[in-house]
Amino acid sequence: MSINRTRGLLYWLARLLGDVNAVRRGRVGRRIGRRVVGRAAGRGIGRLFRRF
């Protein structure tokens, strides 16, 4: 197993544990909202830098 695959697995596991924690605390909506906003911001920044 390569280091990149291991790192990807660890990031996936961390995200899963964060989701479980959000469910336990009753903050799923807030977590999903932040994830959506973060993806949109990342895409916008990526498009901005692709133009230059």
Rank of each mutant, 00 (worst) to 15 (best):
Arg15Lys: 08
Gly8Gln: 08
Val28His: 01
Ser2Asn: 10
Gly38Met: 02
Leu48Gln: 09
Arg35Gln: 12
Asp19Cys: 10
Leu17Phe: 15
Gly44Glu: 03
Trp12Glu: 15
Gly26Val: 02
Met1Cys: 07
Gly46Leu: 05
Ala40Pro: 11
Val23Ala: 07
Val37Ile: 01
Arg31His: 12
Met1Asn: 04
Arg15Pro: 02
Leu16Gly: 04
Arg43Asp: 14
Gly44Met: 05
Gly8Asp: 12
Gly38Gln: 08
Leu9Asn: 02
Leu17Ile: 14
Ile3Arg: 13
Gly44Ile: 00
Phe52Gly: 03
Gly26Cys: 07
Arg43Asn: 11
Ala22Gly: 01
Ile3Val: 13
Trp12Leu: 14
Leu9His: 02
Ile45Tyr: 06
Leu17Thr: 10
Met1Thr: 07
Gly46Arg: 12
Arg34Leu: 00
Arg34Gly: 04
Val23Leu: 13
Arg15Cys: 14
Gly46Asp: 08
Leu13Asp: 01
Val23Cys: 08
Gly29Glu: 09
Arg39Gln: 14
Arg35Leu: 07
Gly18Lys: 15
Asn4Lys: 13
Gly44Gln: 09
Leu10Pro: 00
Ile3Gly: 10
Arg43Met: 09
Leu17Ala: 11
Arg50Asn: 09
Leu13Ser: 01
Ile32Cys: 05
Val20Glu: 12
Arg15Thr: 13
Leu48Val: 13
Gly8Cys: 08
Ile45Trp: 05
Arg39Val: 13
Val36Trp: 03
Val36Glu: 11
Val37Leu: 04
Leu17Lys: 14
Asn4Pro: 02
Ala22His: 00
Arg30Ala: 04
Arg50Val: 02
Thr6Asn: 12
Arg25Thr: 10
Leu9Tyr: 06
Arg24Thr: 07
Gly38Val: 03
Met1Ile: 12
Leu9Ala: 05
Tyr11Trp: 11
Arg47Trp: 04
Ser2Phe: 07
Arg15Asp: 15
Gly44Thr: 02
Gly33Arg: 01
Arg5Cys: 10
Ala41Tyr: 11
Leu10Thr: 01
Leu9Asp: 01
Leu13Tyr: 09
Ser2Arg: 12
Val36Pro: 01
Val20Arg: 13
Arg7Cys: 06
Asn21Met: 15
Arg24Trp: 15
Gly29Ile: 14
Leu13Glu: 05
Arg31Ala: 10
Arg30Gly: 04
Arg24Met: 09
Arg15His: 10
Trp12Gln: 10
Ala40Asp: 14
Phe49Glu: 06
Val28Phe: 15
Arg25Ala: 06
Val36Asp: 10
Thr6His: 15
Gly29Ala: 07
Arg25Trp: 09
Arg34Glu: 11
Val23Tyr: 14
Leu16Pro: 00
Tyr11Ser: 08
Thr6Arg: 15
Arg24Phe: 15
Leu16Cys: 06
Gly33Gln: 02
Leu13Cys: 01
Arg15Ile: 14
Arg24Gly: 03
Arg43Val: 12
